[in-house]
């Protein structure tokens, strides 16, 4: 390990959030990390840091991660104030150290929102998202013998838009980036997917009403068109989904039996 950073090895000062549990106040711990290969991913850099902590006989920093290829939605860091770090449309696990310079200070924090309490260090509780989906983010079809898959043609444009919305990985980055800690992008992505598809029509009104009600009950804020959610979203989910959800909500509230 070199004391001085070379082109593919850099020295860093890390400011890592540590918090022993939900009740603890928490705070930053400063650590020097030398000789970090720029070919590493950000989470591999944290692995190296944790190895050092274990060598010192201290507990490693807890952080959520799993697939490490940008699809499971488990990783959830705020890096230098930016959700999932400085590169657009990627998750934390897809961020590589070649985007940092020798001598950089890096602040690493958990996603922060009232509805996402910190469990330990960088790990937060995002179970509120599961409850929003449980409120109506599905088509009520039991396993059995539905009609042939091709009996229901769907215009390609609608299918593509539904897929754009369905690409959401449920990481919660939208909430962490929003000044209001709103979950509108997440909720609207599922509402949109189903509203765009014929399979979603029978429950269209009750779905949007129930999901929005659950979203509010969880303590998420409201949308004030900051668009920070879209800027932070690793999957590029578009804010037009929020507009669609608002339209769906208005329609269901005013013009359906469900809203009466």
């Amino acid at each position: 390990m070199s004391a001085h950073g070379s082109s593919d090895s850099i020295n860093l000062t890390l400011h890592v959030w540590r918090q022993s549990g939900p009740e603890d106040k928490g705070g930053f711990e400063v650590r020097r990390l030398n000789g970090v290969s720029t070919h590493m991913s950000f989470l591999e850099m944290l692995d190296v840091m944790n190895e050092q902590l274990v060598a010192e006989g201290r507990e490693p920093v807890a952080f959520d991660h799993d697939c490490r290829e940008g699809i499971c939605g488990m990783c959830s860091l705020v890096i230098n104030g930016q959700v999932h770090g400085p590169i657009p449309e990627i998750t934390t696990c897809q961020l590589h150290m070649r985007h940092f310079k020798d001598g950089d200070s890096i602040y690493i924090e958990p996603f922060r929102a009232g509805a996402f309490p910190v469990l330990r260090d960088l790990v937060v509780d995002r179970s509120a998202f599961d409850r929003i989906i449980a409120a109506g983010g599905y088509v009520s079809v039991a396993t059995g013998n539905p009609q042939d898959a091709n009996a229901l043609p769907i215009p390609k444009r609608n299918a593509d838009l539904a897929m754009d919305a369905a690409a959401c990985i449920g990481c919660g980055g939208c909430v962490a980036a929003c000044p209001n800690a709103a979950a509108m992008l997440f909720t609207s992505a599922k509402v949109s997917q189903m509203a765009l598809l014929p399979q979603g029509q029978p429950e269209r009104d009750r779905r949007v009403l129930a999901m929005v009600q659950q979203m509010d009950a969880e303590g998420f804020g409201n949308c004030t068109n900051e668009f920070e959610c879209m800027a932070a979203c690793p999957k590029g989910i578009d804010v037009s989904n929020i507009a669609r959800m608002n339209r769906e909500y208005l329609r269901a509230s005013m013009c359906s039996a469900e809203g009466a």
Binding site: V139, P146, A159, M194, Q199
Partner: peptide, 11 residues
């Protein structure tokens, strides 16, 4: 058939 009925957005 089941997945399409659930709204899985296949190509």
């Amino acid at each position: 058939d089941q997945c399409v009925a659930q709204g899985v957005p296949f190509a």
